[in-house]
Design a protein around this nucleic acid. Sequence first.
DNA 1: CTCCCATGTCTACGGTCGTAGACTTCTGTG
DNA 2: CACAGAAGTCTACGACCGTAGACATGGGAG
Lengths: 198, 198
Amino acid sequence: MTDRTDPTEPGGRGARRRDAAATRQAILDAAVAAFTRHGYDGVGVRDIARNAGVTAMLINRYFGSKERLFAEAVDVAFAPRTVISGTGADLPGATARALVTRTAPDAEELGPFLLLLRSAADPSAAAIMREAIARHAGRHLTEELSDGVGAELMLAVQAGVWLMRSVLGTTALVEEEPEELARRIGSLFQVLVDPASG
Amino acid sequence: MTDRTDPTEPGGRGARRRDAAATRQAILDAAVAAFTRHGYDGVGVRDIARNAGVTAMLINRYFGSKERLFAEAVDVAFAPRTVISGTGADLPGATARALVTRTAPDAEELGPFLLLLRSAADPSAAAIMREAIARHAGRHLTEELSDGVGAELMLAVQAGVWLMRSVLGTTALVEEEPEELARRIGSLFQVLVDPASG
DNA sequence: CTCCCATGTCTACGGTCGTAGACTTCTGTG
DNA sequence: CACAGAAGTCTACGACCGTAGACATGGGAG
């Protein structure tokens, strides 16, 4: 009855027997989820460790500090190309529809924008995320739009919608029909992609 | 040499001799500034008390708890009509120009959007702010636009610009010419105010 | 089979947090 | 001038934070 040392129980994931790479990955996964849900300041290393099925000290052994773990988690969260959908003329509409779907009240989906919004209060976390944006999301958008200002304004609009709709849950944006909301946000993106149309 | 009990020294503001209303106001002012700069989680009641020239316990005597102090501070910050400028056809451009000015890199201006962004991580703080938006900012915008969704999208765009430009300081939005940036943001607002033009 | 080192845990420290209760000091009133 | 009550402070508690150092343990190489 060695209940406490059984790695299959606490973390929920399959048995992991002293595999450094897998443990490191489990910590990183737990960190991305926790930081996204509660922000940099709202999560303790003990919470992350518990969800990864290890003790808090192992985090510092593998990542050095909470801040460096956060930097790696941010890099993981921002690397995939989730900030734009579609290409060319289809980009504004497709990106708007994806945004509306992902910020639906019952979606409970994570993503880089939630991580961004919930960790923005801490200055060092903000600096880490600014660099991650420049390295990943901003670059994806810039090379598609060939317009840095338009790209960052598109990020700003998306972040704002995430904030109002998912983080705060303001009434009008939550209750509006998804198709109509996507249409209105899509027209915003259209103006950013093709400034002449505004 | 009663250096420690002199109220002119610690707080910086003029002598205040046992005036309950003035003390309460001083705490509230310090709370608005502190919450705006560092967010709900990033500020301790001792910090606020020190800036108001009192001790931390007085906060609980006057406001009951940190959370109730935050609720009052949010109400103060969101009450003034700072989320829109101008009226009618001038509204999009005037609001965009005001936004660009206030989010300038050297502005160091406070405002409800910074409070909103930096306190969004905490769920109870988010609930308080959602209600404050419905009560103040959202209402101002809705009665000007007679369109709840458009009003909240206008708030979303402004919050996003504040986030990228003031909180994160992303390069493109910081380095762009203010006039050109205001023009592009103004065209976004134009689409929201007059959906037919999109 | 044995030993060694990577892997992981335990205990603890100094610090900060929100806040409860007892205590002190000032000020307006009789 | 004395005094009651308002205004404000002091001390303390229990909880959590990030992290440092010593300790335990398992598993692959000889």
